[in-house]
Design a protein around this nucleic acid. Structure first.
Lengths: 213, 213
DNA sequence: GTCTATAGCTGGATAGAC
DNA sequence: GTCTATCCAGCTATAGAC
């Protein structure tokens, strides 16, 4: 890498143009779908022409890769933010809620990050790295809160992913499944550590809404 | 509809050509991915030319629709097959295993049927109908086996779908998540009907493999 | 770095002869 | 119903002037 000092601001400027394009790309795919991204649209919305995009990215997949990288970083930052709960159970609920919030707030991002649906696209190791780290971080948290067995960690991820997936697929914008997170976490805790108590759940349909969503 | 009797075999012949094309289409997408289907490939593999496809289908989406319809029918047939268990718990396990088997045996079919990932494609009501019926059938079974609350049914679907989804996404061809079905079902039963007993699970990692998979 | 112009390709779909 | 030939639209990507 050239680390000449004088032209540093130039690099910064280039970086910001780079980032702007990715901004626009994200706003585009959130409207048209992941596969609906075209360089023409992207350029037009960014106020440049299609060939100019190639001044910043070598290919369309390089754009997807940068989008993936940003999403992975956002994911890492989101999940690593400190949790201000004392109770382990509340902590697990908070983790699940945060994950769910992250996914449902941008289904397209969820699709790019966690579902492999784009043909001919594989994220580069560099873009992938932050996501790996974040997932490992979550797993470590699980261990801290008593879920040490791999089997249980797998059930945990399946459970949370299942809630998110059903929410996005079958009730987009709603909360039919996300509102079941607390109850599901309690179910999981009761199963994985029967000694520790999980909170009781009454059988009435609705809980006070808006708590820690 | 013309219901002239004499040319009935002609209709049958046409139907079989129709079906053959869908056969080929399925074998193609299972290799190239759902979005990778092209009329040229399809025609070549079917031993005809691209325009001839239009003798049977009005558009590419009509092909997707027919594929969806077949998948939905297969799903309905699979799930409606009689369950030969006495124990309700075993029955739930059997349902989950059957669903899981259906999905993991053809991830592409799962993708078309349950995830909305194809842009500009919506299944027609006719193609959709069998899937709806099958899902209602499953839900009725759940009620029969004691899962009557809507909340619990939603948790059930999330749990099973989550296991399948993780299996397909993160361990295709393996059984890292599908082997957790029994344990997950027991967790669910314990939660949804604490009075009825679910089978015990020891904490050792592996269970005897190959049982009712 | 940004443009205009365009290459080069692939895809869905149609026309019309047989 | 099946073909050949072809249209037309859309895309990614490159060439080359400025």
């Amino acid at each position: 890498m050239k680390t000449k000092e004088p032209a540093d601001w130039r690099e910064a400027r280039r970086r910001s143009a780079h980032d702007t394009i990715i901004d626009v790309a994200w706003s585009l795919v959130s409207e048209e779908g992941l596969a609906g991204l075209t360089l023409r649209d992207l350029a037009r919305r960014a106020g440049i022409t299609a060939p100019t995009v190639y001044a910043y990215f070598n290919s369309k997949n390089a754009i997807y890769d940068a989008m993936f990288g940003r999403a992975a970083t956002e994911f890492a930052l989101t999940m690593a933010q400190p949790y201000e709960c004392d109770d382990p159970r509340d902590q697990l609920v908070a983790i699940a809620n945060r994950f769910s919030q992250f996914c449902t707030s941008s289904p397209t991002r969820y699709q790019l990050l966690f579902q492999r649906t784009l043909p001919d696209f594989e994220p580069s190791p560099e873009s992938f790295a932050p996501a790996i780290l974040a997932l490992e971080g979550v797993r470590e948290l699980l261990v801290v809160y008593g879920i040490s067995e791999a089997r249980h960690a797998d059930i945990w991820t399946a459970l949370i992913v299942g809630l998110v997936d059903q929410q996005i697929s079958n009730d987009p914008g709603g909360d039919r499944w996300t509102r079941l997170i607390e109850e599901s976490v309690d179910m999981f805790i009761t199963h994985s550590q029967p000694n520790r108590g999980s909170r009781k759940h009454d059988s009435r349909p609705a809980q006070t809404k808006g708590i820690s969503t």
